[in-house]
Structures are given as C-alpha cells and as structure tokens.
Simulated assay, not measured.
Amino acid sequence: MFTVGTTNQPVRQEWIRTTLARIPEGLTLLDAGAGESTYKPYCAHLKYIAQDFGQYDGTGDVGLQTGVWDNSKLDIQSDITAIPLPDHSVDAIMCTEVFEHIPDPIGALKEFSRLVRPGGYLLITAPFCSLTHFAPYHFYTGFNRFFYEKHLPDYGFGITDLECNGNYFEYLAQEVRRVNTMASRYAGTKLTLLDKVWLKGSLWVLQRLSKKDQESSELLNYGIHVFARKK
C-alpha cells in the first residue's frame, strides 16, 4: 500500500496539536482566520477566541470549494489586519492555512505584533504551494521559509521552530492522486486502465524516492509550520 502523498493534513494536524500543548494553561489564544474552529478541541487548556472575516460560504465554481461552510461559531468577525481588540491583549495567536487567503499577509503580521503581549506565542501554518481553493479568496499560492525568516523578526517575533511538511516527492504524489478527479473535471474524460496502472507505478516510484529523500523540501513541500515568540 502506498502512503506517499497522503500525509499533508495528518502531519499538519499533529504538529498543531503538539505545538498548542506547549502553550501554558490558562493563557488567552486568538485563532485568527478560525473558519469553522477546526482546532478548538486542541485548545481546551486555553481561553479560546475565534476570529474570521466570515464571508466565505463554501460555494463557487472556480477551483476547489468546500460546498458548505459554517461561520456561526465566530467570536469576532473582522478583517484580519484590523481586529477589534486592545494592544497586547492576547497571549498567543494561531493562524492556520490562512495566509494564502489574505490580500495583505504582512499587514496581518503587523496586527499580530500589536495584539500579542511580549513573551507571547505565534503559531502559523500555510502552504508552500497550493491549488486554487476558497475562491475568490485565494491570493497567494504559498509561502517559502524565507518569508517568515524575513518578516517575523521585522515585527518583533523570534522563530522557535520552523518545519517543512513533506518534500518534493510527497507533493508530486499528492497531485498524482488528484489526476483521476482532475481528468474528469478539466479534460472531460475518464482514465483508462492503462492510465491507472501508470499512475500507480508513479506512486511506487515516488514513495521509493521519498524514503531516500535528502532535503528536497527546500525545492517543494506541502507547507511550512512556524512557532515563534514575541520579544
């Protein structure tokens, strides 16, 4: 059985869970761009606040869409660059898979710097590369590690951990697994038996190469995970 290309979400979820557990109990955490508050269950030890712009409803004809979306659990509905909370009013901010949907991600970092108290925490995940999704609210395909290494210090954050999720071979395998669906949607055709055999063979090759991987994540990966502290 080939697992190559299937680890994007589970690895990210586990990193978020274990990283949130590093934040001391009782602190206030703002989930910026919380959406449906997917990771609220990991925040039971924290005072959780959910913020989002609240305009995405799951529908649309362009790219990948969810079909439905629930904004009813939000505590704050606002632009992420102008969150109506006082300066230094939260101990931590979590922002997961949101930056590609923000017209001004650097403005968001500036706002996070305003909101987080000195010594506080910042947890960010975002794609390194992504397909069009949540359109029309998709403005960047992804962010390299150098984005964080440049801009986080500019806004007073010191990076504690920075991890790449996946590698070149894992990412290619993820997209190989989409080919059947994409062939139907964008080429109006179904794959032949020979096509499916070829794709399965591709996954075998990619899994073998991924096991031998030596830092191909510097070229391509699923996404970057960042944990930082406010100075």
Rank of each mutant, 00 (worst) to 15 (best):
V205N: 03
D195N: 15
E215I: 08
R185G: 14
W198F: 13
D195Q: 12
A187Y: 09
L193Y: 04
D213Y: 06
V197K: 05
T189P: 01
G188M: 01
R185E: 05
R185F: 09
L206Q: 01
K200S: 11
K190I: 13
L203D: 08
S184Q: 14
L203M: 03
N180H: 11
W198N: 08
S210P: 04
E215F: 03
L203R: 07
K190H: 13
T192N: 09
V205W: 06
N180Q: 15
N180F: 07
T192H: 10
V197T: 14
L209C: 06
D213E: 08
T189A: 06
Q214K: 11
A187V: 07
L206A: 07
V179Y: 00
L203Q: 06
V197I: 13
D195L: 09
V179L: 08
L191T: 01
L193K: 08
K200T: 10
G201Q: 05
A183D: 00
S184H: 08
R208H: 12
R185I: 10
K200V: 11
M182K: 07
K190W: 11
A187N: 02
A187H: 05
E215A: 13
K200E: 14
S202R: 06
T192A: 04
N180M: 10
L194F: 09
A187T: 01
Q207P: 15
Y186W: 03
V205G: 04
N180I: 14
K200G: 12
L209K: 04
K200P: 02
V205H: 06
L203P: 07
K211N: 11
V205T: 10
V179Q: 01
R208F: 11
L194K: 10
T181S: 14
S202Y: 03
V197Q: 04
K190A: 14
R185W: 05
V179E: 02
A187S: 05
Q214L: 13
L191N: 02
T181D: 15
M182T: 02
L209I: 04
K212W: 07
L191Y: 00
K211W: 09
L194W: 05
K196H: 09
K196Q: 15
L191R: 00
K196D: 15
D213G: 10
S184K: 13
A187L: 15
L203I: 04
W204F: 14
W198V: 05
V179T: 12
Y186E: 03
L199D: 05
L209M: 11
G201L: 02
A183P: 01
L193S: 12
L191E: 01
G201I: 01
M182S: 08
T181G: 15
M182G: 09
S184L: 12
L193G: 08
A183R: 00
Q214T: 07
V197N: 01
K211V: 15
M182N: 09
S184G: 10
W204D: 14
S184A: 15
A187K: 03
D195W: 05
D213R: 03
Q214Y: 10
L203C: 07
Q207K: 08
S210Y: 10
Y186A: 05
D195G: 04
V179S: 00
G188S: 06
A187F: 14
N180R: 14
R208T: 14
M182Q: 11
R177E: 00
S202T: 15
L199K: 01
Q214F: 08
K212P: 07
L206H: 06
A183T: 00
R185Q: 14
K200I: 04
K190Y: 08
A187I: 01
W198S: 09
N180D: 15
W204A: 15
L199A: 05
N180P: 14
G188L: 03
W198Y: 11
A183H: 00
R208V: 11
